[in-house]
Structures are given as C-alpha cells and as structure tokens.
C-alpha cells in the first residue's frame, strides 16, 4: 500500500517544502517566516521518514527524528525567542516588492527544473523527479539572503538554503550517512548560534540589525 502512495506522498512533502519557501518570500513578518520555517522543517522530516520507510533504512528514521528536532523545533525556537525578545512584530522591508519576488521565485523554480531535468533525466526514481524542488529552495534561500535587509531575515534565508541542500541530498542519493548528517546539523546549529549572538551584539551596538548601515569596511 505504501508503495502505491509513495510517489504521491513524496510529491506532497515536496509541495509543502516549495510552498513554505514561496510563502517565506511573500510574507514580510519575521515571526510568520519563522513559523513557515518550522513547518518546512516538519515537512523535510516527513520526507526523510518516508524515504526511510520506503527503503527500509532504519538509520534514515533516526535522521528524520534528528531533522525534526533541529529544523522543526530547535532552530525556529532560537530565532523566535530572539524576535520576541526584541520586538513583537518585526516588519521586513525588502529590496524587492512581493510581486517581483514571487515572479523571481517562479523563474528560479523553472530554471532548477530545466537544469536538474537535464542532469537527472536518466534517473528513473520517483525521488529524483522531486529533486528540482530542493534546488529551487536553495535558490530561493539565496534570493532571501540577497534581498532582505535585516540580519535575522537573512538568517531565515540561510536556513532555507540549508534545507534546500538537505532536500537535494535526500532526494538524489537516498539520504546521507548518519554521522555526516550529524556533522552538518551541528555545523548549522553552530552557525545559527554565532549569528544569533552576532545579531544581538549588532542590536546592542547600532540599535538595529539593518545590514545596509554596515558599510564602513568597504575601503
């Protein structure tokens, strides 16, 4: 039974990932973005679990629990905690207006389908067909990094990018070894903690986290 609904389930999870990514670009509220990030973490964990169950790999189930814990709970919690601490509702004013941003995301998604479609055309697996979603997430994450002004919004973009990389890894190679995943997760955690401290210091020093004001170092 699982085998018959596996393609649909994979498609559903990938859809959730893409949808959350797109909404992150659309929404300007930081708290909303963090909520979407948590949802995306849960979606990613579900995807890993699905692949694990389908391939009968117990290790992947452990990884899925890890992903759920880290990307679905811990990281969003850290971000949200900080956001609440500073201001209740942080409104982002990005460099792009939402319509242009959404169109760009559509373009990027098409590009990733074109690119990965060529590369993975000979792979028949169902998971490989969903892999372009991962690349689209990477590109969308990058777009957020480029267009957002505030350090914390950029952090969201960075995490989206990381999620995208993880998605591509799971979908194309059927998961990564546990130790590798553990290492990557620790890295991401470390980066987020460092950036968390850093933005805290920025806030204390400049009274804001708008990176546009950081232009002293250009000579």
């Amino acid at each position: 039974m699982l085998t018959s609904i596996f393609p649909q389930a994979i498609g559903l999870c990938a859809g959730v990932l893409l949808l959350t990514s797109t909404l992150m670009v659309w929404r300007h509220s930081l708290l909303a973005s963090i909520g979407l990030l948590a949802a995306q973490g849960i979606g990613l964990a579900a995807l890993v679990a699905l692949i694990g169950v389908h391939s009968g790999d117990a290790q992947l189930l452990v990884v899925s629990v890890l992903v759920l814990a880290l990307k679905g709970v811990v990281l969003p919690w850290i971000l949200a905690r900080q956001s609440r601490a500073s201001t209740r509702t942080v409104e982002e004013s990005p460099h792009q207006n939402p319509i242009v941003a959404l169109l760009t995301v559509a373009g990027l998604t098409i590009l990733s389908y074109v690119v990965l479609g060529r590369i993975l055309s000979h792979v028949g697996a169902v998971t490989a067909h969903a892999a372009p979603i991962g690349l689209a997430m990477v590109l969308t994450g990058f777009l957020l990094l480029v267009t957002r002004r505030r350090a914390r919004s950029q952090l969201v973009g960075f995490l989206l990018l990381d999620n995208g990389i993880a998605t591509v890894a799971f979908l194309t190679s059927g998961g990564v070894p546990l130790f590798l995943e553990l290492g990557i997760s620790l890295d991401v955690l470390l980066v987020v903690v460092i950036l968390y401290v850093f933005t805290g210091r920025m806030h204390a020093k400049f009274g804001g986290t708008d990176v546009d004001t950081l232009r002293e170092l250009h000579d």
Partner: peptide, 9 residues
C-alpha cells in the same frame, strides 16, 4: 566593491 553585504551575496 562598496561594502554592502547583500551586494556581495
């Protein structure tokens, strides 16, 4: 090369 982080990104 004007020091804006977003531009480098």
């Amino acid at each position: 090369q004007n020091g804006r982080i977003q531009q480098y990104l």
